[in-house]
């Protein structure tokens, strides 16, 4: 049985798409397809006018697990992608680029620490820096904030928002958190249960410069309500039930 079937998602260049859906519906498979780590049995994935046939240097990835290398310092962890895709870049330029990002996420002064010396939220910040250090066209995130506590998660949402303002990239975020999808997304895509297809697409009608308070406006509440109902449908439940 296919994991994804009839999935049709278009993410306009430079926008942020949040993908939500019931557990086990194939969201992670979607990220692996977009990243070129997996080939679709049927159908196609296109990125920036090119068909994805395998891994490409212009993709960034972040996971729920920050996947930092314990034997490297935070700085050297952030530099890692540059060692693969920017082989001609000098060490000094790599350091400058990494420090610029570390500064943006508030990790200045921690660049020489080991990952084990940092808190979970800080590790995830470093992981985000690593995922965009090589200026990818597309950033693919598979529940990057899922393992963090609620307040740290909200801090990271704001960091993500600020990073996007400073560095334009197209983003696909897989999440289970509806508030997160509305806060970060330009559009929210709801996937159905397995096999996953596009069930519902919502354009997020909130101001560009949203703050956490924007989530407590009537408009946000209305959108969250609609999404909640869509999730229930995706789970195969009646939206009228509570």
């Amino acid at each position: 049985m296919p994991v994804l079937d009839g999935l049709d998602v278009a993410v306009p260049e430079g926008t942020f798409a949040a993908v939500v859906g019931p557990s086990g519906c194939g969201k992670s498979t979607l990220t692996r397809l977009v990243a070129g780590l997996m080939k679709p049995d049927e159908g196609e994935v296109w990125l920036h006018g090119e068909r994805v046939k395998g891994p490409r240097k212009t993709v960034g990835m972040a996971f729920q697990n920050p996947v930092l290398l314990e034997w490297r310092t935070i700085l050297d962890n952030v530099i890692l992608p540059l060692e693969i895709v920017a082989t001609g870049m000098s060490r000094a330029d790599r350091i400058a680029r990494a420090m610029e990002l570390l500064d943006m996420v508030g990790l200045t002064g921690f660049e020489n620490k080991r990952p084990s010396e940092l808190s979970g939220g800080m590790r995830q910040r470093a992981s985000l820096c690593r995922s965009i250090v090589h200026k990818p066209d597309v950033l693919i995130m598979d529940e990057p904030f899922g393992a963090l506590d609620a307040f740290t998660r909200e801090d990271l949402w704001q960091t993500m928002r600020d990073l996007r303002r400073a560095e334009p990239f197209t983003a696909v975020l897989i999440t289970h958190d509806l508030r997160e999808s509305v806060f970060l997304g330009d559009q929210v895509i709801v996937l159905s249960g397995r096999p996953a297809r596009t069930q519902y697409v919502m354009d997020v009608d909130l101001p560009e410069d949203r703050t956490l308070d924007s989530l407590y406006t009537p408009k946000a509440a209305e959108m969250l309500h609609i999404l909640r109902d869509q999730i229930k449908i995706a789970q195969g439940r009646n939206p009228e039930e509570h």
Binding site: P55, R56, K57, M61, F63, N65, V67, P81
Partner: peptide, 10 residues
């Protein structure tokens, strides 16, 4: 995931 962070970059 450890493999993927580098594999995704080719």
């Amino acid at each position: 995931e450890y493999r993927d962070i580098l594999r995704a970059l080719g």
